[in-house]
């Protein structure tokens, strides 16, 4: 398993639209499980309601865990995704 923490810089946090983008991105890797954890609550990135329910605000940090096929590459791709979109 690979993991990294990321501090969200989008001014309104992981709101509906970026959450949707995140789910879309996660769907690209059906053989890899990607989860998001905030304050001990962990959700699967494939689930929009789950991601939105974390209510991640700007300046808060989240832990991203990647496990399964091509962990390294997928984790790197997600790190890049977070930087650009969140």
């Amino acid at each position: 398993m690979k993991e990294f923490t990321y501090v969200v810089t989008d001014p309104i946090g992981i709101h509906a639209r970026p959450a949707g983008l995140l789910v879309k991105e996660a769907k690209k890797y059906p053989d890899t499980v990607i989860t998001l954890t905030k304050n001990g609550k962990e959700v699967n990135c494939l689930k929009l309601m789950g991601v939105m329910s974390l209510g991640v605000k700007t300046g808060e940090s989240v832990l991203v865990k990647v496990s399964g096929a091509d962990e390294d590459a997928v984790a790197a791709a997600f790190e890049e995704f977070f930087k650009i979109n969140l």
């Binding site: 509906a16 639209r17 949707g20 789910v23 879309k24 699967n44 494939l46 689930k47 929009l48 309601m49 789950g50």
Partner: peptide, 10 residues
Amino acid sequence: THQMMAEDMD
């Protein structure tokens, strides 16, 4: 986004 909600796994 609404469209994604309609199709959301949760």
